[in-house]
Design a protein around this nucleic acid. Sequence first.
DNA 1: GTGAAAGCGCTAACAT
DNA 2: ATGTTAGCGCTTTCAC
Lengths: 334, 334
Amino acid sequence: MSGNKVTLASLAKLAGVSTSTASRALNNNPLIKQETREKIQKLAKDHNFSLNAAASRLRLQKTNVIAVIINLEKETEQSIDDPFLLKVVSDINLAVNKQGYELLLSNSYMAGDDWHGYFISGRRADGLIVVGQGKQQQKIERAAIQGTPLVVWGDPKTQSNYPIVGSDNFLGGKTATEHLLNKGASKLLFLGEPAHAELGERYRGFLAALETAHHAKAELVRIDITSDAAYGIINQKLRESGLTFDGIFACSDMVALGAMKALKERYVSVPNDVRIVGFDNIAMADISHPSLSTIAQNTKVAAELLVQKLLQQLAGESPQSEQVDITLIQRQSS
Amino acid sequence: MSGNKVTLASLAKLAGVSTSTASRALNNNPLIKQETREKIQKLAKDHNFSLNAAASRLRLQKTNVIAVIINLEKETEQSIDDPFLLKVVSDINLAVNKQGYELLLSNSYMAGDDWHGYFISGRRADGLIVVGQGKQQQKIERAAIQGTPLVVWGDPKTQSNYPIVGSDNFLGGKTATEHLLNKGASKLLFLGEPAHAELGERYRGFLAALETAHHAKAELVRIDITSDAAYGIINQKLRESGLTFDGIFACSDMVALGAMKALKERYVSVPNDVRIVGFDNIAMADISHPSLSTIAQNTKVAAELLVQKLLQQLAGESPQSEQVDITLIQRQSS
DNA sequence: GTGAAAGCGCTAACAT
DNA sequence: ATGTTAGCGCTTTCAC
């Protein structure tokens, strides 16, 4: 309950200097003599003084805050449970902090429709990072048109008036599929929903890999991007038609693991009877048994790129979309 | 790039009223005539106007922001990858928003040592939610003493001068262990680190359940709370001493899954040879094969309690610590 | 039911 | 190298 009422002015008086000197000292302005600076900084520390962020934000017209909006597919307000999405947020948090910014975690619920108004005009943040293109492309578009500094995690190949950072999904799909073919699979399944931008690219890569493999067959199995859906459809396929495939490229690790569960329950051997490759390289990929081969996305690099491109916009530049490399991680499932 | 310069004053002028009227209208102050209010609110919407949060925070001495600090065990600044921790944050986010507050996501890196100074005096947030008791108990303690509105996710039985919300870990450990015994296990392993407050309670529950089971044997296996550590130790045990146990209570699902992998690799049947129960009920518990029995924590309820108790503090009350019920979820692994 | 005016705490242009 | 001062945009007391 101590000294909550310390202000810059009172601190300055204590130090016997003006508020401007105190302000400059605390902001490490080189104009101030080293000795004065140290004295004032020590005084501030002794009194547990911190500059009032609200006041300096008002004065500077700058918040030093970056808002992160998680763009859920589902309209319902649920908590997130895809570990990958959360990994992305966590890496963004680190990258944001590294640049001296703070992270306001948001979602469509709080921000409403007018992102520019709410975040930028409302001086809640200097810029936005949107995770997932989702259903709200109009909201993003609109904010961008209004001049919101804005970057998106998604499919970098999508045409847009804002920079998108994401993995080379096409290459990821192609690499995964070629790997399945090399391992001897010839009747392949794609598990996912190509209507989703990133997954569409993965599917294109899947098809591209198959073009040169004339003996191979492929089937697109459209499902929700959940392990439950994958479990359900594989179960159903096995029940109704038996084992008509010998390789699966799943659009995410969660989907792959769901499929794997169905196979194991029906005593289909992975990888002998069916090879599986996932996408994301979540922690569970390594712990599942058999462990899951997958395409790893480099979320750390991507997060740093997102932040960097946002800061470039704040500096008046116009950065472009950018792809991040993927890596095939081979484990037991293939 | 449009109308970034709309202020309350300019809006008021447009509407032909004073700034006070405009302010009251936008804040739904009942003093204002319905008609005036609607006119001004419509005007604001048309001009994409939002009140400048920095200015009103300065004026009101209130931010409407709650900071969430993730208290990692490890000192190194890594990204989080326990899905459970992230589930908690996600649920807190929802609960915070529900109360009309925003969420500032933070970590020890940004906040430094002086949490009260940084967040409260610095007017970055009105209160703190700390996730995990971790190593920084002094920081928490200190902030609390300085009068920081503060709640902690952790072990509610820990003595403290701030409210702690968390699961009934003792009951969880006891329930899990009784379940293992009922299922016929008599040589039990506890996998975890009881020095950690929450896990210590789970271990106490483990021991309590064994007290009435005179025929049963128990062993404490201290390990890092990671699936890798669990995998490693179980592997080592099997290699060195063979199968000397028939039941495992793992302190988290990730740990349980790591142990399960080691067992499966060595063809130990789960649940026939060894029964396993985890803790947390992460998504993977349901997808693993065999699926994992576990103690589910009610993160949604806990998150709402955390926020509620924080708001109570803001209102001058002194809420107490509180336990949240747990549920045994039986699946194939037992 | 509405308006005038003060002031929240800070920063920076301008002065010295 | 440091001080004086205006003003960022809002809310609310006090007056009518």
